[in-house]
């Protein structure tokens, strides 16, 4: 069944989009990630213009993170104060990102920049995860107990000024890295259409030493608002949010996430991480191939005076 997307201005198949949403939702439920970093490249592979894929991806992320954050709110595993400071940084980063987005679009370099960022980020994250999970798998097979890193150790981040107390996270750190991390995630959200959970979660755990139980809830809380802000600004400045497209992805996504979460409980952590790493790497490689392959048309047209 075909449907015409009003903003993307192309006809697409409803079932392909629902399936795409469900597949990404399944994975996000299984791995506990938002899935924005998979949705945007998939949409680009499906010939949705990158500018629309990014803005709509940000919109779609709200649904999955809102659903997830509600669960964490009920369980009380959400640090509102930490989330709020991250969010303040996120708004600044997102605003800067939107500006860069519009500028790159005017210069005709937006598509390239989005692809490059995806290749770099997904390549790095996927590579690191794969190495880590393969090592963990090997260690568990040889029967050795996994070596735990000492959690009490402080790094340079904990020597920065402007310290603030985050009671729910049992944390006393400088606001500078928290704001900076929020800003970086906001920037990526507006340029890549991702929630940024796949960067935020490890950064909170390893850099800020936030207890693992509040990390996901807090990250989701911040992502809701950063993506909501990003969606709003993209809608007003670039008119690139396609609600029909976003809704189809969300509808598939929320359903898929439930089955993914069940499937995830049956797999072991290292195996899950290795699978996710391979998936992330596959997307990065596919995008990289497109960058190097000779395009069918060297010339492209675009409306002048865009934005």
């Amino acid at each position: 069944m075909g449907i015409y997307l009003p903003i993307a201005e192309i006809s697409v198949n409803v079932f392909v989009l629902l399936a795409m949403g469900a597949a990404v939702g399944f994975l996000s439920g299984m791995f506990g990630v938002g899935g924005g970093f998979l949705i945007t490249p998939l949409l680009i592979f499906y010939n949705i213009p990158p500018a629309i894929a990014v803005a709509t991806g940000a919109n779609q992320v709200i649904a999955s993170s809102f659903s997830g954050a509600l669960s964490h709110f009920k369980r009380g595993t959400l640090d509102f104060k930490l989330g709020g400071v991250l969010l303040a940084g996120g708004i600044v980063g997102s605003t800067a990102g939107i500006y860069v987005f519009a500028l790159l679009r005017r210069l005709g370099q937006l598509d390239l920049f989005i692809s490059l960022l995806y290749v770099a980020l997904l390549g790095t994250v996927g590579g690191l995860m794969l190495v880590e999970s393969v090592n963990a798998l090997r260690a568990s097979r040889s029967g050795a107990a996994p070596v735990l890193k000492k959690s009490g150790q402080h790094n340079w981040i904990h020597r920065l000024p402007f310290k603030m107390r985050f009671r729910a996270s049992k944390l006393f750190v400088s606001v500078i890295p928290v704001l900076g991390l929020g800003a970086a995630i906001g920037f990526l959200s507006s340029i890549m259409g991702v929630g940024g959970g796949f960067i935020m979660v490890p950064a909170l755990i390893y850099l800020l030493k936030v207890p693992t139980n509040v990390v996901i809830g807090t990250s989701l809380f911040q992502i809701i608002f950063t993506s909501a802000y990003t969606t709003l600004v993209h809608a007003t400045t670039n008119q690139t949010v396609d609600v029909i497209l976003a809704f189809l992805l969300m509808a598939g996504g929320v359903a898929g996430a439930q089955y993914g979460a069940k499937a995830g409980q049956r797999l072991r952590g290292e195996q899950l991480r290795a699978l996710l790493a391979m998936l992330v790497l596959a997307v990065a490689i596919r995008l990289a191939v497109d960058l190097f392959a000779t395009p069918p048309n060297l010339y492209s047209l675009s409306a002048a005076g865009l934005n």
Partner: peptide, 14 residues
């Protein structure tokens, strides 16, 4: 509207 729709979908899904 786009943001509200996303939140509503997330909430209904849950």
């Amino acid at each position: 509207f786009a943001v509200s729709l996303a939140m509503l979908t997330g909430w209904l899904g849950r």
